[in-house]
Design a protein around this nucleic acid. Sequence first.
DNA 1: ATTATCTATAGATCTATAGATAATGC
DNA 2: ATTATCTATAGATCTATAGATAATGC
Lengths: 238, 238
Amino acid sequence: MPPAKGSRIGRPRSNPRPLDGPPRDEVVKVASRLFASQGFGSTTMRQIAEQSGLSPSSVYYYFGSKDEILEAIVAEVNRVSLDRLAAINADGGEPAVRLFRLIRFDVEVLCRLPYDINEISRLAALQEERFATFWKERQQLNDEVEELVAAGIADGSLLEVDPRLAALSILADDEAVQNWFRPVGEHHLRGRDDPATGDYAPEEIGEFLATQTLGALLRHRSSLARVRREADRLDAAD
Amino acid sequence: MPPAKGSRIGRPRSNPRPLDGPPRDEVVKVASRLFASQGFGSTTMRQIAEQSGLSPSSVYYYFGSKDEILEAIVAEVNRVSLDRLAAINADGGEPAVRLFRLIRFDVEVLCRLPYDINEISRLAALQEERFATFWKERQQLNDEVEELVAAGIADGSLLEVDPRLAALSILADDEAVQNWFRPVGEHHLRGRDDPATGDYAPEEIGEFLATQTLGALLRHRSSLARVRREADRLDAAD
DNA sequence: ATTATCTATAGATCTATAGATAATGC
DNA sequence: ATTATCTATAGATCTATAGATAATGC
């Protein structure tokens, strides 16, 4: 019996629910997985409740609506990459090395993430005001990668590409691995001759994509080996 | 009143509906757009009917269920790229040039496509048997790109990468542009300094991505200009 | 007392069908 | 006659709330 949209009779606003903790986090985790595999619209609160080991109404104790669960997921999606980039920038080093490290890390993390970033982005695009933070952070990530590319062009190590277009496609390519890398049990695209060994490890994919991207961007491709060595050294220090 | 799942009382099987024609095609077009922006699960038959200028029950005259509409979309998704690749292969030329042409074309087409390929893939992954054709064609596309890369390695023009991993990431990167390239009116990620001119044309993006990909793959990057010229020449002949 | 859970259920909405009616083609 | 559409509606299911009850903390 949803009354006038937006009314909130059942749950006392004076007593806000905790923002984390076992049951709440579990709901977010379960919902992420379901949204990723079935999509947001096809996932019901019942399913989320069931897989969280709660009754549907208990889920409403933590979240006022399905949209609110989505909001919790969307809120943290960009943080992973942004935090990592901040750490990489703090480490210092040439732009090319920073880029290599970011891409390699991003791909590995995204392969393992339970969200579907692309699904999340689409849903966030549908309600720009509501998910303003998502778009702000997303724009920030874009801007920072753009700056990195621009810095690499300025110091002469990268070719003179359009830094913004490069940033957009770097991040998009990173996220694209989610579209074919799926955890065991779901569909994989396999090799022609050897359908049994169709899987690549996230590390392998990250290494490949970082190498390809820098291989295209570096002015002198002969410096690629050095860039990778330097990235390895800094990553090992973490 | 959906009776036993799978029963089909209301629509006489002896009188199958046409497989194309104005109202049917319009439904597919409208549904593609809605699935892409809202997702499959959040799109209702009512919405599809309304935007097609039909009553909901008229939609059921052409499609037995929402899944059947999806099936019609899924069925043709891979054909565009497969047909294009066949044409490119018929034209002949070196592997590197064929790859360049395929990527550039793919990106341009995908930017303009009303489907969300990634959404479609996810839904197809959920019902592998039902969408067996989709997966067969998708695998075929993958195999053919893999062969192209392998041929380029064999003739010495491309670096010795893993051809299958390369094929997977080439196709994924192509599709990734859909995640940030949206038609006017929806959200765009914009430039830091000039939020007004945030848009790239599909041709520009296709050119960029084809250049980046080949720039990373070609053994001698100095041959890139020649590859592009040859691709231009052959594309102009179409 | 407060916090967390449950059962029961209201009301909305959704998919799909039944059956009537209008439009078209022979 | 056949093809294409409509109105009306059945039954399922979904979101969200009300209100009861159990568990926890002071």
